[in-house]
Design a protein around this nucleic acid. Structure first.
Lengths: 236, 236
DNA sequence: CAGTGGTCTAGACCACAAC
DNA sequence: TTGTGGTCTAGACCACTGG
């Protein structure tokens, strides 16, 4: 059989779209057991490789459960997967058109409070760098950052002034990470948030708390407090 | 050449891990231009197909920029991608071991307030179903849900009492969705949140706001207010 | 125009899991 | 034991994009 032109062949994206359509509109309602890859490849007129790619993509989108021997089944309810791209503050601010400004508010080598030590899994006597800084969008405070860095795992941090380079940018350039845990929460503005973000104390503040590890060593724990009215949004 | 056993062959996962290692530890620092796929396949001792799969996976993780002609380059800072699986309340509560209980607080056909209409893109005279309900984990309120459903797009909703079936479960079983927009934010507890979630009015409440469309028709807009101390967490 | 990634194919062996 | 998805290979054409 003559090779078809690539533009005429069925692509995995088209097949994926058709499968999704059949799941949402069509005959493949929730719970349906789909035909095997070999058979579907025949009916779609493509190779099994392509069929597999399309099915994997649909499964990645959360519509399908795939298991060997059992086959491919349409999930009863699609997984609701939200993908948030956590941007660097600088990028987020500059993307909005405002000039970015960084201000270091506090820098100390100190013993971390108990909840920080517990969360990072470090000893009570661990030397920690504690940083507080504010990221401005033009004249307005955008985000306040309260960060602890494990100086035991990263002695270099003690030599950094962080007067100009932000902790995040320095960390990204200096250490990789293998594990990240991110939480989103709402907390009440404390005195620092009131002072640096212009909140009234007790007001709700959208907060991101993020801890990172590298090879089982805690590197940093940071709380990011956002300005009033901030929302983190994604579409899909 | 004799076929090797599959268990002896290099897998795309191993190659992916090695590439990530070289990016984080190794010689391939930020900004490095990687060799082409053909050459890398040679050095890794695999087919180009496998090499491509490994590189695509690394790129999906946010480490690489890939463009035709230009080649594959290590990103200056890795994209920070957080994937949140938004669970259904019932699953989330039952996973914690507590019994799930659902209570409908309010059900009315009404005109939506302006901000709701704006966000959903519906006319001022659109018939909307307004529902308020509370999801309990055992004795304790877990989440309050304030939902608007576009009865114009979904007349069936008018026949539903929602006394037993939750709006979310009914919607999932009834309509698919093509577009979802999710926001996370912190807002202050209002009277309803105080009453149903046990908050003090004005206290911070972690809130998820989600709007869904189906073929350019707004289906539903929902605000989910979580109990005190809730955090949405992910690891990777 | 030419180089690089994007994708398709046909065939093969394998791992997992239900039986 | 057997059926299903997971993956690898070798070869091919194509699409995008920088020069």
């Amino acid at each position: 059989m003559t090779q078809m032109k690539a533009s005429d062949r069925t692509t995995w994206r088209e097949i994926m779209a058709e499968i999704v359509r059949r799941i949402t509109d069509g005959p493949w309602g929730p719970g349906t057991l789909l035909p095997g890859e070999v058979e579907m490849a025949r009916t779609f007129g493509c190779s099994r490789t392509t069929m597999n790619r399309a099915l994997r993509a649909v499964a990645d989108q959360g519509y399908l459960d795939r298991r060997r021997k059992t086959g491919t089944r349409v999930r009863l309810s699609p997984r609701r997967l939200a993908r948030f791209e956590i941007p660097m503050v600088r990028d987020e601010i500059e993307a909005s058109g405002a000039p970015y400004r960084y201000a270091l508010v506090q820098r100390e080598v100190a013993v971390a409070p108990k909840w920080v030590r517990a969360r990072m899994g470090v000893e009570a006597d661990a030397r920690m760098m504690h940083l507080v800084c504010v990221h401005h969008a033009g004249d307005r405070p955008f985000q306040m950052e309260d960060r602890w860095i494990n100086a035991g795992a990263l002695p270099l941090v003690l030599e950094q002034s962080f007067a100009v380079v932000t902790p995040n940018e320095w960390l990204i350039a200096t250490v990789p990470f293998s594990q990240v845990e991110i939480s989103f929460l709402a907390c009440a503005a404390d005195a620092a948030a009131a002072e640096h973000l212009g909140h009234v104390a007790g007001e709700p503040v959208f907060t991101v708390e993020s801890a990172t590890w590298w090879q089982d060593q805690a590197i940093t724990l940071v709380s990011l407090f956002y300005h009033k009215g901030y929302r983190m949004t994604t579409r899909y």
